[in-house]
Design a protein around this nucleic acid. Sequence first.
DNA 1: GTCTATAGAAGGATAGAC
DNA 2: GTCTATCCTTCTATAGAC
Lengths: 222, 222
Amino acid sequence: MTEKDRQTEEKIFESATEVFLDRGMDGARMRDIAAHAGINKALLHYYYRTKEHLFNAVFELMAGRILKKFAPVLDPSMSFDDKIRFFYREHISFLQENPRLPGFILNEVNRNPERVRKLLAGFDLNNLWLQIYSQHKKELDEYKIDASMMPQIMSSIVSLSVFPFAARGIFEAIFEKQGLSFNSYLEDRKEFAAGFVINALRNNNTLLSNTEIKSQRAHKKR
Amino acid sequence: MTEKDRQTEEKIFESATEVFLDRGMDGARMRDIAAHAGINKALLHYYYRTKEHLFNAVFELMAGRILKKFAPVLDPSMSFDDKIRFFYREHISFLQENPRLPGFILNEVNRNPERVRKLLAGFDLNNLWLQIYSQHKKELDEYKIDASMMPQIMSSIVSLSVFPFAARGIFEAIFEKQGLSFNSYLEDRKEFAAGFVINALRNNNTLLSNTEIKSQRAHKKR
DNA sequence: GTCTATAGAAGGATAGAC
DNA sequence: GTCTATCCTTCTATAGAC
């Protein structure tokens, strides 16, 4: 009885996840979710009152799952370089298993800004970058990186792993034309991206210093 | 007469662009496009037979516009470093004026792979990376970069400028919590990203060499 | 070319039997 | 808990008057 409930509800949730990931909130059809779960539409409404309820359940689980993957960034037991290497290995592997996740989340979030607010509500973002900076102050000082550059640096790190998935459709098409597989590109990327970032920071020369100066100037303007 | 046609058709097209950029193909409503244009639905169908026709017209213009912005990459008159600096300045400026474009294109392309095929049909991608590599062989040799690394490098360059726009909703929310403006972040980014990439390549040390070796190994596997 | 009115299809949601 | 049948709304698209 209760066992069967759980099974059905789970099946519905899995089917909904599948269809929503594929088509998004607006493009998904309750009929398709029901068909995918091998049941009828009425049962969907029995477990989740409306389409929106069902979508929210799926979205929150998925968004939570991807956000949790950023947690190791605050692990104090790793050096900055190791952390970067670890991050790309783990994060890209995770996205290889969930390739549609970035596009799904980004799209829904851009369409409905209210979702971001609710989503980030549980996280302490007020001093996120300062936290990371403080944790690695010693190494970052050697690189001549100060706290004001953290937004640029952190956003760059994330871009390098998430964007290929967000632009998956285009990447796959271009790679195919050149006889490359998207998957082997991703395998390479785990190490390439880490090396790329570490090099960029390690030899933080006049170029970055210039940026820093301009950055301060720009901030004063506003 | 004909002048009025042109005006109406243009107004419809602009309104459609606005609504499609905001809501996507699935989320857009013909009623909203008509309202935005100050006309009625029937007139939409008079000029563009179906919603899909109208959408395709908008999508093709927008996609073409963003793709054209990558053309200077093949300009042979600039050095590699200058090209990178030029690219970020121009590309980020363009996206500042069209911030919803990346999310729109990426979303529609991921949902409908057929669009990519048609989209890229006009471009010679068979040896795109080899072209760029050949053009700058001398500089790239100094960086110890060979042709097989071009996919990783080019995709990294694009990621750093496009991703902040694709993830605009999240970025804006996070920045707001820290008292930063998305726009000043973007202003800084034009120079930061260029410096970041040039540094990463310039001091291409053992890290990248390792990646290269692994890369070759990985390719043999498949 | 532009409008009003409406057809016709498709979507989400519910009633009620089992 | 699960189903069939159906309601009601919304959407795209067209007919027909001006």
